[in-house]
Computed example of a mutant assay.
Amino acid sequence: MRRLLTRLGGPAVAVMLTVGPARPAQAAGPAYFEFTDAGRRTAVVRIDDPGTIQHARDLLSGATDQQPHIFGRIVKSPAAYNPKWSFHYDPGTVHFFDVMVEVCDATTPFVEDHLDEAGGSFLPGLFWCPWTSRLTREVPAP
């Protein structure tokens, strides 16, 4: 029995050295991206969904050009990561699109200037889909 363990021990150690020790999976955290639109002002969006984060990174790297525009529900309050504006996207609602209905299209400054009207006939349901939005870069977490 001792010889069997010795014989198996060498290959087992070699496999462990090649593969390396098991590492616990890192929890995927949120990612933050700067974007702009026809208003030429920048804002920051927080994205929580790993698949959506990957799509955003693929857009920035040029791996895809599909669904380049941001869509989601806005919250009428500032966020620490987006201090220039009195609103931000609800991170759990952020997605990307190619084509969307006109009723949710507006530039960032227009949303800021008409925030008190958002949720009614302007941006019904607080859904905002700036047709000209484009990611510009990934930014560090605040």
Rank of each mutant, 00 (worst) to 15 (best):
C129I: 02
E117R: 00
A28L: 13
D113M: 05
A27I: 11
E112Q: 15
V13H: 11
V19Y: 14
D49Y: 01
H114E: 09
V19L: 09
G20Y: 10
L60T: 11
P91V: 04
P30N: 02
H55Y: 15
A31G: 07
T52W: 08
E34R: 13
D58R: 15
E34H: 09
A106W: 11
A141F: 02
A38Y: 06
P11E: 15
P21T: 15
W85M: 05
Q67G: 13
F71G: 12
L60P: 06
K84Y: 14
A31F: 11
E102A: 15
S133Y: 00
T136E: 00
V15F: 09
L126H: 02
V139I: 03
T42R: 10
H88S: 08
R137H: 07
C129P: 01
F122P: 00
A28N: 04
M16E: 15
E138A: 06
V44R: 02
A141H: 00
S86H: 12
V99H: 07
L123K: 07
E138F: 06
A63K: 11
L4S: 12
T42S: 14
P124S: 10
D48T: 10
I74L: 10
S86N: 13
I74G: 00
V99E: 07
W131A: 04
F122W: 03
I74H: 05
F122Q: 04
A56M: 15
P11K: 01
Y89A: 08
P30C: 02
D58I: 09
V139Q: 09
T108W: 03
Y32G: 01
K84G: 15
F96T: 03
R3F: 12
V13R: 11
P68F: 01
C129L: 02
R73A: 09
D37G: 08
T136N: 03
L123S: 05
V75Y: 01
F71C: 12
G29E: 01
R3C: 02
Q67C: 14
T18F: 10
R40C: 10
G10R: 08
V75K: 09
T42A: 07
T64W: 07
V75C: 01
P124E: 14
R2N: 11
I70A: 04
A56I: 12
D105W: 12
T18M: 13
T132L: 02
D116E: 12
G51D: 15
V103L: 13
T93E: 10
M1R: 09
S86C: 11
A28S: 14
V44Q: 04
T93K: 15
D98L: 03
D48H: 00
R41L: 10
F97Y: 04
S77A: 15
P109V: 03
T136L: 06
E102D: 15
R40F: 05
P30Q: 01
A31D: 12
G92N: 01
F33T: 04
A38W: 09
L135T: 03
L17D: 06
T132G: 01
L4F: 03
V45K: 04
L135I: 01
R7F: 13
G125A: 05
A28Y: 10
Y32C: 01
G29H: 09
G51M: 08
T42E: 07
Q54K: 14
A118F: 05
Q66D: 07
A14I: 09
A31R: 03
G20V: 10
E34S: 08
F35Y: 00
A28G: 13
S121A: 14
V75E: 05
T136A: 08
E112T: 06
P140M: 05
